[in-house]
Nucleic acid binder design. Structure first.
Lengths: 336, 336
DNA sequence: CTTTGCTGATGAAACGTTTCAGGTGCCGCC
DNA sequence: GGCGGCACCTGAAACGTTTCATCAGCAAAG
C-alpha cells in the first residue's frame, strides 16, 4: 500500500504535480475542467494532503497550541470546548497541553509547540510567568494570546474579563444582603486575576463605608478538597465569617461539602458566592450564586483572536469585545 | 531575525549538518567532545528543532490525536487530563478535538489528524461508528485506540471497563436497599456502553428474582438539562419509580435539580445512582452513590497503549490491565 | 503579419530534517 | 611498512509540498 501523494495523483490524472497542488489547495489558475478532474481522481485514490510537508515549505500552519494549568476545572473545560469548536470551524486543529502550575513545564511546552510548528499559542499562564517566558515563541514570530490571567509587562494580546469589576460584584452581593465581613478563599495571589478581584472586593467594602480589613484574604489553593479541609478547620475554630467568597465555583464545592459535614446549611447559616458560572453551580443545592465570566465566550474569543493573528491581521482589533462580568443570583446567600 | 536550523548551528560549531543532527537527536556516532560542543552552540543560538521537517523525512511523529464527543462532561475532562499528562511524560503532545455526536465531523477530524501526521489516534467513537470509519487512519498505518465505547467488529485496540459488570453493580446497589423497580435514564442506546450496562442491570434484576421488566430504559440524551426536564415531567405524572440509575454522574445532577425544584429529597424520597465517579459527585448533597470506572486510569492506559503502538510494539499487550468497576457508596440511596 | 496580453499549465528549486554510503585519520597488529 | 579495523565525521539524496519563473497557445490589437 504505497503512500498517495501529489505525484501519484498527478500521474493518474495526467497533469503535473504543480497543477494538482493548485487544484487541491485552491490557489493558482487552473481551469474548472481540470480542477474537477484532478479533485475526482484525488479522492478516488484516497489522497490525503501531508500538512507536515506543506508547513515545511510554506510556513503556514493549521495548528493552534493551547496551554493551561488544569483542564479538570470545569471553567477550563468549557473554555477549551468552545475554543476547540471555533478553531475547528476556522479550519484549525488544537494541540492541548497542561502546565499544572509548573513554570518549567510550561516552558518546555512552549518549546515543544513551537517545534511542532503551531501557528499561534493560546496561553493561560502559570503564576509567576513573565514576558521573557514568551520569548521562545515570539522570537519565531509565533503570536501568543494570553488568556484569563494576564502576564505583566507583556505585549501579547490579552483575552479576559475585568477582574476588579468581578470582585466588586461578588462582594457587593454579600454586602447588599447585610453582611459586614467576608472571607476570600482560594486562588493564587501572584496571578493578576486574584489581585484584580482582591482590589474589587476592597473597593466594594469601601463604597459600603466599611474598612477593607473586614474581608480576610486566604489564597493558596486551587483544590476543592483543600478548601473543604481549610473551611472545616477555620469554621470549628470560629475564625471564619459567615460570608465566603470563593475564588471559583469549583472551589465553592469544597465549602458546600465542609458545611454539610459540619451540619451547617449554605444559604441559611452561611453565604457563599463564587466566580465563573459553570453548570456545576446549578446542580448544587442551594444553587450557587456566582459572578459569570463567560468561560465559553472567553474560549471562542481566544480562538478567534489566535486565528486572526495567524492570518496576519492587525494585533489590536478585537481587544474590545471582552465580556462583562455579570452577577448570577441563586440561593446561596442569606441575610444575617 | 533569521531562522536557526541545523545549518546555522553547523556553521557556528564548525561541523557538518549531519553531525549536528546526530548530536541533537542522540543517534549516530559522535564523540562526547563534539556532541557537547554542538549542544552548547545549539542552545546558545536558540536552536529549536523543526518537527515538521523531521516528520516529513523520518515518518516518525511526536503527536497523538485524541477525538471525543464532548470534553465538558467531567468524565472526559479527567480522562483527557491523565491522558495528556502521561503522553507528555512519554514525550508526546496531544491534538485534541471533539466530534460532538456528529459522525461526519468525526470523519473529517480523523482525516485532519492523519493529515497533520499524528502517530496514533485515541478515539471515543460517536454512536454509529463502524469499522469502515477507521479505514482512513488504518490505511496509512496509523494505529487507533478505541476508548470507553467500543466499535463493533473493529480490530482496533480497546480500552474501557466491563460495562455489563458496571450495570450490574449499579442495579444491585438499589436492589440491596430494597427497591423493586428502577428507571435507567440517559445515554445513547446505540453505544456498546449503554447496551452493556443495560444487560448488566437486567442480569441483576434476574438474579434478584425479578423480571427485567421492572426496570424502564429511557435513553436518548447526554444533557443534564434535558434529564432534569424529563425527570420533572415523568415524576409529576407519577410515571417514574423512586430509584433512578443515571447513565453518568453528570446527568445525575439533572435529577438532583429536578428533585430540588419539586421539593423531593434525594436519599430520602428517591434513590439515585450514577456511573463514573467524578469529583462532582462528592460535592452534591447528599453525596452521589456511583459506580467508579476510573476515568483517569482509562486516560493514562489509553495514552500508554497509543505510544506503545506508535513505537511499533505488539498490539496485544496491555489489553488486560483494564480497571475493575467498583461501587462507591454515598448518601443518595434510601430504603423504601 | 507581428506584437501584446492573457489563461492555463509546467519544471524545478526550495523548506529543514534524517540517514545512507562513504571517507578520513589513527591505532594496533602482523 | 603495510594493512585491517575502528571511531568519527561528512556529502548528498531523499521526504511531499508550495511557488516562482517560464512557456505554450491563442485571441485581440496594431
Amino acid at each position: 500500500m504505497k503512500k498517495i501523494g501529489l505525484k501519484e495523483v498527478a500521474e493518474a490524472a495526467g497533469v503535473s504535480v504543480a497543477t494538482v497542488s493548485y487544484a487541491v489547495s485552491g490557489g493558482g489558475s487552473v481551469s474548472e475542467k481540470t480542477r474537477a478532474h484532478v479533485l475526482r481522481t484525488a479522492d478516488l485514490l484516497g489522497f490525503i494532503r501531508d500538512e507536515s510537508a506543506a508547513r515545511l515549505r510554506s510556513g503556514q500552519s493549521r495548528l493552534i497550541g493551547v496551554i493551561l494549568n488544569n483542564i479538570v476545572n470545569p471553567f477550563f473545560s468549557e473554555l477549551v470546548a468552545e475554543l476547540e469548536t471555533t478553531a475547528y470551524h476556522e479550519g484549525y486543529l488544537t494541540v492541548l497541553a497542561t502546565a499544572q502550575n509548573d513554570l518549567e513545564r510550561q516552558q518546555k511546552l512552549i518549546q515543544s509547540m513551537v517545534s511542532q510548528g503551531v501557528g499561534a499559542i493560546i496561553l493561560s499562564p502559570v503564576h509567576g510567568t513573565t514576558s521573557v517566558d514568551l520569548a521562545a515563541a515570539e522570537q519565531r514570530n509565533i503570536p501568543v494570546v494570553v488568556c484569563v490571567r494576564d502576564v505583566p509587562e507583556s505585549a501579547a494580546t490579552f483575552v479576559g474579563v475585568d477582574d476588579q469589576k468581578s470582585g466588586y460584584l461578588a462582594a457587593q452581593a454579600l454586602l447588599a444582603a447585610g453582611h459586614q465581613r467576608a472571607d476570600f478563599i482560594g486562588g493564587y495571589d501572584r496571578t493578576t486575576t486574584w489581585a484584580g478581584r482582591k482590589r474589587g472586593i476592597e473597593a466594594a467594602f469601601e463604597d459600603a463605608g466599611l474598612s477593607p480589613e473586614h474581608c480576610r484574604f486566604r489564597p493558596g489553593t486551587m483544590s476543592p478538597a483543600v478548601v473543604s479541609e481549610e473551611v472545616s478547620r477555620l469554621m470549628t475554630k470560629g475564625e471564619l465569617s459567615d460570608a465566603i467568597i470563593c475564588f471559583n465555583d469549583n472551589l465553592a464545592t469544597g465549602v458546600y461539602s465542609a458545611a454539610q459535614s459540619l451540619g451547617r446549611l449554605v444559604g441559611r447559616d452561611l453565604s457563599v458566592v463564587g466566580f465563573d458560572n459553570v453548570p456545576l453551580g446549578r446542580a448544587l443545592s442551594p444553587g450557587l450564586t456566582t459572578v459569570d465570566i463567560f468561560p465559553g465566550k472567553l474560549g471562542s474569543i481566544s480562538a478567534d483572536t489566535a486565528v486572526r493573528l495567524v492570518r496576519g491581521k492587525a494585533r489590536d482589533e478585537g481587544r474590545e469585545n471582552r465580556p462583562e462580568p455579570t452577577l448570577m443570583m441563586r440561593g446561596s446567600i442569606h441575610s444575617p
